[in-house]
Design a protein around this nucleic acid. Sequence first.
DNA 1: GGTATTTCGTGCGTATACACACGACTTCCT
DNA 2: AGGAAGTCGTGTGTATACGCACGAAATACC
Lengths: 154, 154
Amino acid sequence: MDNKSELPIVLRAAYLAMHRMSDAQFSPLGITADQFVLLATLSRGTALTQRELARRMPSDPSTVRAMLVLLEKQGLVKRDIHPSDSRARTVTLTAAGKRKFRQLWDAGESIRTKMLEAIQPDNAAELIGHLTRLAEALNGLSLYGSGLSQTDKV
Amino acid sequence: MDNKSELPIVLRAAYLAMHRMSDAQFSPLGITADQFVLLATLSRGTALTQRELARRMPSDPSTVRAMLVLLEKQGLVKRDIHPSDSRARTVTLTAAGKRKFRQLWDAGESIRTKMLEAIQPDNAAELIGHLTRLAEALNGLSLYGSGLSQTDKV
DNA sequence: GGTATTTCGTGCGTATACACACGACTTCCT
DNA sequence: AGGAAGTCGTGTGTATACGCACGAAATACC
């Protein structure tokens, strides 16, 4: 099988493996891998709208809503009405949410370390570059460069 | 954000982008991205059991079962009782399944090309190697302590 | 200003992903 | 042989992922 055919397969395999391991690692804390991504995204941006949160994850707005409902039940996030746009709702981490995220971050350290070691740390920057370009090409737009409110670090 | 923290994020972004794009591309043919993976796996192995099929995808046996039920309804796969093990069922592509897979393969060519171009073809082998090692490391990762649980399948 | 368009969140439907438990069957061990 | 242990497929439950359609509200346009 040539490279062109194999690339999608190994990309899928690597992601699913990471996802499974993350789910298992976070499970004792009552959080899924995807919920961790949401919390992490929230921890880096304040009072995001659901739409903007979905764009940054990246994920679908209706998926994000379902996740927020569950996280709200656990008291980890809070949804308020947007101050200037009554259609929108702003999402923020609660104190419990921030605390939980710190625990999750620590719990995930072993996975991040394992990943970095697997590819040899020297290759990380390059791999990240490739994956980023891959995502950009497939999305047809830049993940970090285009459009909307772009107020934080890149 | 350092490399260690960013790698999981871009891996996720790249996979989801590929998955979304594939779903959109295959949708006119009535097939999902994951169903394509299943059909592709079947096209490379004859009379696999559901378990073996799940292992190769890789995916969960119960997920594979649900997918097979749908694909069977479409007449693309066939499930027979295993000749020597009455617990198991062997799965094969029907003629319609093979035909559909060829169409899907062609329909997916543009995505594979786009992916290869995004990373520059010269880097493909290296990227594949990194992702493969990533998946292997994560699949063999023990949750408790420094593990020695090994995946020792063929 | 008033209307057309766009955007936001919601709700619904389908398909994955995986854990877990269960019954049926096979294999292993003695 | 016969019981114990492992394996296969099934069924159920929860959480994503995403498309689509809806009502409400903001924005654009004339």
